[in-house]
Design a binder for these strands. Structure first.
Lengths: 162, 162
DNA sequence: AAATATAGGTTCCTTTTTAGAACTTGTCAA
DNA sequence: TTGACAAGTTCTAAAAAGGAACCTATATTT
């Protein structure tokens, strides 16, 4: 498999990485969730080269994660904003942040905290079953080929998980 | 910022990406969660070059996400297994898969389904507040600098989110 | 009027990563 | 004795990223 063919793989993880799996892309999205919208603001905050930044923003717009919105005319200036599709990446960001808070923090602990507006408390994200609502861990889940894909994915699942 | 300095940033997202943010790393971890453990199995399934695979596995072991476990002696052969720390990346995988299922699927739908062993149902992951247990979206969360970092992160949060 | 600033890029050249193939090492089986 | 196997390492070529300078349209300052 070549990296550029990722979005045609029969795997939702691979297809998502086709959108957000390049270097810097998830850091750009982190800044979007913090309210950053303009090219030069991303550039200064990330220290990424303009060439890479142009490429990543273009890709995110082409996949519909961000959209360009004019904030002045003459000369036309546009900023980058999260679409509904982009906002739905928030659980991914929270997952990565949560793991880093727990496993990569130094003695000062997590730099940023998340307040749940509705309960007012400092929280972190937990992952739950959409059906029964219970919290889950990796060992609570079994994986299967969807019926619509049976016969087309024979070699994808290694025998251990079948 | 240089990509190699990611693990020293005052940001848990950046620090997590120092571990899992390189090309192919999250696909390697996907396979680990499917039960793949051996060098040649990763190589065949991913089509990644041996050079890159060696580098990524070494990095994951050095960060304690995977550990090497001998499965035969003479000649010594070792396989790569998820540590407890690695298993805790499952919410990140589920988040990426869930987004791909929703936004990147073709007409056949999601290739892989997840069964919650305890309730027996086909589920997807939802994200909740660890304090009150309610399901959350991006707009339910407010971000603040942790007290232990105040004064050291003045420029990190753009004014919009403060 | 001329020079400078600004936002959002593009161009050019160098360095780092990745791709692709061949080679290595220790052991076992034919 | 030859070949296979697992898990790499080494080599060269191609692609991506880093770094600096340049471009464009407009607005402001000198």
């Amino acid at each position: 498999m070549r990296w550029e063919d990722l979005d045609q793989q029969p795997c939702s993880l691979a297809r998502t990485l086709a959108v957000v799996g390049d270097r810097w892309t998830l850091l750009i999205l982190r800044d979007c969730f913090l309210g950053v919208r303009r090219f030069d603001a991303f550039e200064q905050r990330l220290g990424v080269t303009r060439h890479v930044l142009t490429d990543r923003l273009k890709k995110l717009v082409s996949y519909g994660v961000l959209y360009k919105s004019p904030y002045q005319e003459r000369p036309l200036r546009e900023e980058y904003r999260l679409s509904e599709k982009g906002l739905e990446l928030h659980p991914v960001i929270l997952g990565l942040v949560g793991w880093g808070d727990k496993h990569m923090s130094d003695e000062r602990g997590a730099p940023i905290i998340h307040i749940h507006k509705s309960c007012g408390q400092e929280m972190h994200a937990t992952t739950h079953c959409s059906v029964c609502g219970k919290a889950i861990t990796a060992k609570d889940i079994k994986v299967e080929v969807a019926t619509s894909w049976q016969g087309h994915l024979d070699e994808f699942l290694p025998s251990k998980s079948r």
